[in-house]
Design a protein around this nucleic acid. Sequence first.
DNA 1: TCTGGGGTCCTAGGACCC
DNA 2: TCTGGGGTCCTAGGACCC
Length: 436
Amino acid sequence: MKEINKLSMVYLLCDCNNFFVSCEKIFRPDLKNRPVAVLSNNDGIVVSRSNETKNLGIAMGSPVFKIQDKINRYKIETFSSNFSLYLNISNRVMLCLESFCQDIEVYSVDEAFLCYRNITEAEAIKTAKKIRACVLKQIGITVGIGVATSKTLAKLANHYAKINSYTGGIFSALSDDKRQKILIESPLKEIWGIGPSSEEKLTNEGFKTAYSLSKADPEVMRKKYNINLSRTINELNGIDCIESIVDSDCQNQIMWSRSFKNRLTKIDDIYEALANYVSCACEKLRSLELYAKKMALFIRTSYFGNAKKYSNEIAICLEYPCSDTRVFASAAKILLDRIFVDGYEYAKAGIILYEFTDSRTFQSDLFNKAPNQSELNKNNNLMNAVDKINKDNKDTIYLGALHSLTKVENKKKDKINKDHFSKRYTASFDELPEVF
DNA sequence: TCTGGGGTCCTAGGACCC
DNA sequence: TCTGGGGTCCTAGGACCC
């Protein structure tokens, strides 16, 4: 007899609550029940909030200078973002999730889809409860879990669980009545894949909720909008049509960019910053054992304020792909010279490496544009040695563009602001938490 | 004074070819 | 002077995500 009530595919979307803030709270039990916020690079805006901070009306993305008085008045504890800590905690959470399910798609630093085949709703919910308890006990992080037959519905169910405390952090949209319930209660903007632009267009067409959108004809909407919207409509109806979101082996680009703490006006200062970004991006490129053939570079003034605005981007294609910091740094110099215009106050710059090939299988070409194999090996060995030395002792070796500095770290502090930096509790032995 | 950073995917349109 | 149409490839820009 065919087993009844077994579902061919069920997704459990596990999402860590207030992730960055939760990471900081693990090592600071004194912050329990207190308002906490994690700030972006440069301590510019709020990127993660504890529930207490949310209740004070601090919005995601609030510029810090606009809420400074609230921070003081309510004694909101603020942290500069500490990515090495968050990545480390993230890895621990993912390891814990993997102990429950082999078929897992890590979607971002704080969420993952667990894919189960041929299970019942009761089994799915029982598993979700175990997972939630386990992550909390082992790592000290609270996860919300949405359960559904499509990823888009699992995201909605997860959001529903988060904002309705009666759910205990878990909501299943597997049954028709529950699915209908979350569709009716979810506004368009909560749907995964519907951003501000689509929301506006769809609202103008008379769609109000996820439910009304789910009743639209996917084919008609595909012609009118695009293929993604027709997929979303199918997904809202529980039809699984987003195959895999994880493309782990083939990242297509590496970007490195930062806003400057202070506006920069001189080309030399901007080049110095860019050389630094090139150095970081190339180090990442080498760690992935990739070569890049193209690099784009951009500079821009601030979007805000009354100062004159300027923004430009330019790309270069190398004669042969490589991962040599010196090659990309020279290219950056040429590109910056082309687009830099005197007289502006620059707020941000960045570089993007793309068109990758596998450095392990790269062959020197027939037309001798690329260095021969022994030269390539020599360059690779040099760069790998630099990486190894820097790994043990950061910034021991750096680019000629930074030679004018006595200490790179000191100079960096001039440009990037991190006034509220927490310790790297899990990533550095010098900063392990102490137990009294 | 101070407004993040790092990604992916889709589409329209230009360039080029026959 | 007349100025096709279809295919492919590339790129810029828009939209979205966390």
